[in-house]
Computed example of a mutant assay.
Amino acid sequence: METKRTNKELLVKGLKKMGLSLIGMFLGPTLLYIGFTNQDKPLYIPILIVAFIVCALAIFFAFKGLKVIMDSMFN
Rank of each mutant, 00 (worst) to 15 (best):
P42K: 11
N38T: 06
I23G: 13
F26T: 08
L43H: 11
K13A: 13
L31T: 03
F74G: 01
Y44K: 09
K13H: 06
M25H: 08
F60P: 00
G35Y: 07
I45F: 08
R5H: 15
A56I: 12
M1Y: 11
K67R: 11
C55F: 04
M25A: 14
V54T: 06
T3C: 09
D71T: 02
I53W: 01
A51C: 09
I49M: 13
I49A: 14
C55L: 15
P46G: 06
P29I: 07
R5A: 15
N38R: 11
A62W: 08
G24E: 05
M1F: 11
N38C: 01
V50N: 01
G35K: 09
L15S: 10
A62P: 00
D71L: 08
Y44H: 15
V54H: 01
A56M: 11
L66V: 04
V50M: 12
P42V: 02
F26E: 02
R5D: 14
Q39G: 12
F74M: 12
P46F: 11
P29L: 08
K64F: 05
P42S: 13
V68N: 01
L32K: 05
K67P: 00
V68C: 03
P29V: 06
F52Y: 13
G14M: 05
I47S: 09
K8Q: 08
L57V: 03
K67D: 06
E9A: 13
T6H: 02
L20G: 10
G24P: 07
L31I: 06
F63Y: 14
G14E: 03
L27W: 10
L31G: 05
K8L: 09
L10A: 11
C55V: 15
L20Q: 05
M1K: 10
F52N: 14
T30G: 09
T6R: 12
I59C: 03
